[in-house]
Structure formats: structure tokens, C-alpha cells
């Protein structure tokens, strides 16, 4: 365990992250319910972004189909409940969604792990659309366009005798927060592991990686499986929060949202997609609330990102911080 002294030095070193963690931990105490729920969504998108960015940022593969995998994970909870009528504790579904998503990734990876660049993107777009049309058209099995209701499941085997809003903002929120920190830790280990460095080597130079004795397709495939599995897991966490799963979440423009939130946060940074997930969701929800032209606003913000802050919010933050403290060069976040 970390000693008291160690903890203090970590806080000194990363004051902003410490502040964010404290805010996240205490949020339900003072924030309005609506905002707390949006942050819960944002955390789930943060997990999705981490999983997506293992491919984009660390392996150099841009998937335009991750919304399909997210939806797949969500349906792995709603469909068993729809067909059995039994509601198990959420962990059962999380495990089920994780395993089935990993299997899906293993299968689809056979097709796409050998492809890169636009061909990888489009293959994944196709996968996402096949998943979408499956959920949409097999209405007898999936509920079709109406989707499927997701009841509030027990957590860790415990049922809570509270109303839905309190459950979401005080109980499920902390559950998601815990899941988020676990995923964050897992991904931090992955990208800083031997495997993570191998992926970055493949990303930087496929041919050199091959001539370094790295079996590039194998590791791309593994990265893909991990990414799909955690995206499915995020989808499964999302299902009870949303209370409902519908095919539209698999639609390709939602894959665009996942790409967007990752670039918004900064895909060159480990923490980028997390910041992106939180900011993107809050921003999108509030713009939808204030204007019907939210797509226009999103589009303009995207243009600003592409042309003026390609390193995303984290990159922007780091360069501002460096300018304030007169440091030169950029450091990894």
C-alpha cells in the first residue's frame, strides 16, 4: 500500500488529478441529480474512450464501429433479462458482456487485424452496421426499434430499497466510479506494460516491428480483443443507467462520437479520452438542452479542434501549464 508520505508526494505532483478525483468522489453531495447522472454517463464514455484509444492512440488503428460494440455489450444485459425474465446481480451481466464481447472481438479480429488505415476503419464501420441492423430488424428477439427495457439490477448481490433517482445518483454512481477507476488502472498497466510498448512500436513502424521479431498481426488482434471487450463492458454498465437499450446506439454516427470524444480529450495522452468522455457528454447534453442546432455547434467545435488544438484538451492544458511555468517541450500526461 501507499504510505502517507507517498500519498502526499503524489498529490503534490499531480494537483489537478487529485482535485478531479476529489470532485468525482464528493459530487453527489452537492451537485444536482441531473449533473451527477451526466457525469456517470461521462465516466462510462471515459471507459469506452480508453478502450477505443488502445487502438487509436497506442496501436494506430481508427475504428469507426465502436458504437456497435458498445451496443452489443448493452444488449448482452438487456436480452438475457428480456428472454428469461430473471434479473441477476449486475456483475453476472458485466462478466457475460465482457466475455461475449471478447469473443466477438476475437472473431472480427480474424478479419480486420491484418488491415490498417482506412480499410480497418471501414471494416469496423461495416461490423457496427451489421450489429445495428441485427438489433433493429430481429424485433422478435431484440425488441426492434423500440428496444428493450433494462430493469434496475442488484449490485454485488444487494438490492437497494431506494427510489430510482437516489439509486442512480448515490449508489450506481459510486459503482460506476469504482468500475471506472478499476478500468483506468487496468489500462494504465496495459499501456505501460511490455505489451503496451510493443503496440506502440507496431503503431510507429510496422515493418521495423516485424524485423524486430514482433508478430504484428497477433498483437493487433489481442489489442483489438481487449478494446472490444472493454467497450462491451462499458455498454453493459451503461444499460441500467439508461434503463433501456435501443439499436440507435449502434448507429455509425455514435461511433463518430466516440472518435470525437477521444480526439477532444487528446488521443496522444493516456488520460485524454477520459477527459474527453466527461467533457463531451456534459457539453452534448447541455447543448441539446439549449439549442436544436447542437450538431452544428459540435461540428464547429470539431473544426476548431482539428485546425487549432489537434492535441486535444489535455494537450492544450499541458501547453498552457508549460507556458505559465516557462517550461519548454511537452511531457506525457
Amino acid at each position: 500500500m501507499i504510505s502517507r508520505k507517498g500519498l502526499i508526494s503524489i498529490i503534490r505532483k499531480y494537483p489537478i488529478y487529485t482535485l478531479i478525483i476529489i470532485i468525482l468522489l464528493t459530487l453527489p453531495i452537492y451537485a444536482p441529480s441531473f449533473f451527477v447522472i451526466q457525469i456517470a454517463y461521462g465516466l462510462i464514455f471515459g471507459i469506452t474512450g480508453l478502450a477505443f484509444n488502445l487502438l487509436l492512440g497506442y496501436t494506430g488503428l481508427l475504428s469507426f464501429g465502436h458504437a456497435g460494440f458498445f451496443a452489443f455489450g448493452a444488449y448482452m444485459m438487456s436480452l438475457p433479462i428480456r428472454h428469461t425474465g430473471i434479473v441477476h446481480t449486475l456483475e453476472v451481466y458485466l462478466a457475460f458482456a465482457f466475455i461475449t464481447s471478447a469473443a466477438l472481438g476475437a472473431l472480427l479480429g480474424l478479419i480486420c487485424a491484418r488491415r490498417t488505415r482506412i480499410f480497418f476503419s471501414i471494416l469496423n464501420l461495416s461490423f457496427g452496421l451489421i450489429i445495428y441492423s441485427f438489433f433493429l430488424k430481429f424485433w422478435g428477439f431484440t425488441g426492434g426499434a423500440d428496444g428493450t427495457h433494462v430493469p434496475t439490477p442488484p449490485l454485488l448481490g444487494m438490492k437497494f430499497a431506494v427510489d430510482k433517482e437516489y439509486w442512480m445518483t448515490h449508489i450506481y454512481y459510486y459503482y460506476i466510479l469504482a468500475a471506472f477507476f478499476i478500468c483506468l488502472a487496468i489500462f494504465w498497466v496495459i499501456v505501460n506494460s511490455n505489451f503496451g510498448k510493443t503496440l506502440q512500436a507496431i503503431r510507429d513502424n510496422e515493418i521495423r516491428a516485424q524485423f524486430t521479431g514482433i508478430r504484428i498481426y497477433r498483437y493487433r488482434h489481442i489489442a483489438y480483443i481487449i478494446s472490444v471487450a472493454f467497450t462491451g463492458l462499458a455498454g453493459c454498465l451503461w444499460a441500467p443507467l439508461n434503463g433501456h437499450t435501443a439499436p440507435e446506439i449502434a448507429w455509425w454516427t455514435y461511433s463518430g462520437d466516440i472518435v470525437m470524444l477521444t480526439i477532444l480529450g487528446g488521443y496522444q495522452y493516456f488520460i485524454g479520452p477520459v477527459i474527453g468522455g466527461l467533457v463531451f457528454n456534459v457539453f452534448k447534453i447541455y447543448t441539446i438542452g439549449y439549442t436544436v442546432y447542437w450538431m452544428l455547434l459540435l461540428g464547429i467545435i470539431l473544426l476548431i479542434l482539428i485546425f487549432f488544438i489537434p492535441r486535444g484538451l489535455v494537450g492544450l492544458g499541458i501547453s498552457i501549464y508549460n507556458r505559465l511555468t516557462h517550461k519548454k517541450g511537452s511531457s506525457k500526461g
Partner: peptide, 10 residues
């Protein structure tokens, strides 16, 4: 490519 795709998406 990610920026090209994002731009046309925007």
C-alpha cells in the same frame, strides 16, 4: 487519417 475523417464528419 483520423483528422481527415473527423473533418468530413464535422
Amino acid at each position: 487519417e483520423e483528422f481527415q475523417l473527423l473533418l468530413t464528419f464535422a
